[in-house]
Write a protein that binds this DNA or RNA. Structure first.
Lengths: 195, 195
DNA sequence: GTCTATAAGTGGATAGAC
DNA sequence: GTCTATCCACTTATAGAC
């Protein structure tokens, strides 16, 4: 189907988000200008405002979208079964989901303070929902006598920090395959919650 | 000893660094202006340049100073003894050093990308030195048969991420005492490196 | 949908008076 | 050592032509 010259909203929209994500991950939200994003896309700065009402909303959409993707993917990956099975599923899921998305991880953990109060609250609620998924698994395991976890909330924060920290050093094509990384971390997670 | 009016370099210098640290931790390096820092100190923006040649150097001094303090403190806290003793010392030291310094931790981990290439290399070398201290303990324990650590480098990164992550949720005066937090994390660390 | 032009304001940094 | 005043590059966002 023929399309009018200059009408590219269906392709330019994603390009704007991609460029914004890459540039913000590299330089930070405050350090990136709308002109830089526009230049990366190949348009003028004014045209960006066809795709976002303002810069703040652009950041919010990136972070909100990442968390929504994460929660949706986990709801599909969550296993039926005992706490040990579910904890292994969570561990492997977290690694597999985050490793291919270094820019999203970086932006989602570094730019929280640049969200407006309302936008921060919304993203924080999503993060809490994800943390609660792990905490629920730990509590189920503690109740079943499979885990020895004196403080499930603290252990949740400790495990998520440990797993998310992979993104600080992992580089695609590096020394270790994803499978090997999963195995090493699952080993540590399992040992740290069992007596 | 009498002092000339308006001559306050010995007190203004620290006030500039304190204000910069607090503001950068809260809003981010790129989002904080020299005018804001000056206002926080109670001077005009131009006077800041008596204490730093430029904004970049101010950030570098904060991060460099924090890492120097960390390395110096660890060199004093490092225990003689077996790997288990030293690992516990490292774990408790890391927590005790970082918890009272939330702003330094935040800035040192979030603003790396805003350092110039040279400044980044210098800070990164200090961070590597600290990581290597832990890695050395893990390797000694593996060699002695005390630990079961298949990949000491990965375990180093995992443990530091887990411990540093405390700063993401810890608030002074919260539910848990520092001693209790130390105990919970040392328990997890110990279990995760032993078979 | 994209462009050019522009409004209105802020950024880091410097000069020179005191 | 601190001030005021200033330079000028750069910021987000909008208006209106095409």
């Amino acid at each position: 189907m023929a399309r009018k010259q200059g009408s590219h909203s269906d392709i330019t929209g994603p390009k704007v988000r991609d460029a914004a994500l890459r540039l913000i991950a590299q330089h930070g939200y405050a350090a990136v200008s709308m002109r830089q994003i526009a230049a990366e896309v190949g348009i003028q700065a004014g045209a960006l405002y066809n795709y976002t009402p303002d810069k703040q909303t652009l950041l919010y959409d990136l972070m909100r979208g990442h968390m929504t993707d994460l929660l949706t993917a986990w709801s599909l990956a969550d296993q039926k079964g005992g706490p040990m099975v579910r904890l292994e599923a969570f561990t492997r899921f977290h690694i597999r989901f985050h490793l291919p998305r270094p820019d999203q991880v970086f932006v989602s953990y570094m730019e929280l303070r640049n969200l407006s109060e309302q936008n921060f609250a919304a993203v924080e609620a999503q993060r809490r929902e994800y943390e609660d998924a792990l905490e629920g698994i730990l509590r189920a395991g503690e109740a079943a006598g499979v885990f020895a976890v004196p403080d499930p909330r603290i252990t949740t924060m400790a495990l998520i920090a440990m797993l998310t920290g992979i993104s600080n050093w992992y580089r695609a094509g590096g020394r270790l395959e994803t499978d090997k990384i999963e195995a090493i971390y699952w080993d540590m997670v399992r040992r740290s919650v069992t007596a």
